Amino acid sequence: MTGLTDANVLPTIGSKELIAGMALWLGIGPGDTVVYPRNAYPTYELGAALVGATALASDDPAEWPASTKLVWLNSPGNPDGSVLSYTSLKAAVDRARELGAVIAGDECYAELGWSPSYDGVATPCILDPRVIGDSRHGVVSVYSLSKQSNLAGYRAGFVAGCSEVIGQLLAVRKHAGLMPPAPVQQAMVTALGDEAHVVAQKKLYRARRARLAAALEGAGFRIDRSEAGLYLWATRGEDAWTTLEWLAECGILAAPGTFYGADGAEHVRLALTSTDERIDAAVRRLSS
């Protein structure tokens, strides 16, 4: 992201707070539609419910109705670790602009891409000129330091992009008292200015991912998507709850894919955020 000024960036109390409240801050309500991914954690749908808007889970821009006022993309995705290409991002932005909707890219896992093409670089950003051309109009990126810097407890995030959208969010949020404390903002500045710790974090998660992925595949699982992020999206080709029961008997905790949408009916989500000792214990149990 280049060429951003103070008018294009707003610190937030983590990213989830903004995601839950975005429809409210933008004046969206009954009769309007909020679009979010088919595989998604529930905060997008919650944000629509809070304002009485219609929530639509859809990954196809052609399906988005004329009533669409806010579109959420999530790349890299939670729970499935999928990454949208520049072409896919551009198609989504073009359709949102055609509808006059704000489009927001939730990119909190951007630094955690696992393919060689993402070594040393972030995954595709919705604010890239290849996506938005020479205008940021109607487009914002949401980011958090919870993942790249392990600062989840700090509630340190920001939204960047279209100055009109940022201005509207600022005008409402400051009167609601939604300003991150100054020490947290200073910690954000420090963390965003240091790449070394991000590289170290990624190395740690990559090693855990390699060990756990190999053990899962050895135990008969297939890992789908999972190109980025802190989770493995795995299946044995059966109902997710049957898989969960099998994992529980091994002493391994996972989340059913149905928590994140109907498309996850045969998948489970396994996190890489446990300690090395716990990951290694899971590997031993899967191997036995």
Results as ranks from 00 to 15, higher is better:
L253K: 13
A191W: 02
A255Q: 13
L112W: 14
A122E: 11
P256C: 01
I166K: 07
T123L: 01
A214D: 13
C125Q: 12
E277R: 14
V34L: 10
V184A: 01
A20L: 14
L70R: 04
E164R: 04
D134W: 04
E245I: 03
E164N: 10
L89H: 01
A57V: 05
L99F: 02
I19F: 03
C250K: 15
L212F: 01
R278I: 13
R136C: 03
A255S: 13
R284K: 15
G237F: 09
I126R: 05
E107S: 10
L272V: 10
E107V: 02
V189H: 05
H137G: 02
G261Y: 15
E45F: 05
Y154V: 11
V51R: 00
V140T: 08
Q185T: 02
R278K: 15
A92M: 07
D280E: 15
R236T: 11
G27E: 07
G157N: 00
D128L: 11
P129M: 07
A248Y: 05
K203V: 12
D276C: 13
F221A: 15
L247D: 08
H175Q: 05
E277Q: 15
K16Q: 09
Y143Q: 10
R95N: 00
Y41M: 05
G47Y: 00
K202F: 07
R136S: 06
L4G: 00
D128A: 10
S135Q: 06
I166G: 02
A207F: 12
N74F: 05
V283W: 06
A7V: 11
T5Y: 01
K69S: 02
A219E: 08
R206T: 14
R208S: 15
G229N: 14
E245D: 07
L26Y: 07
S115P: 04
K203Q: 15
P65Y: 03
A23Q: 02
T87H: 13
E195W: 15
S135R: 05
D280H: 13
A101K: 00
E45R: 10
L24A: 15
W72E: 04
D194Q: 08
I28M: 05
Q185V: 00
L145D: 01
R236M: 11
R95S: 08
Y205G: 14
A53S: 06
L169N: 06
A207L: 15
S75E: 09
C250N: 02
I126N: 08
R222H: 13
A122K: 09
G177V: 05
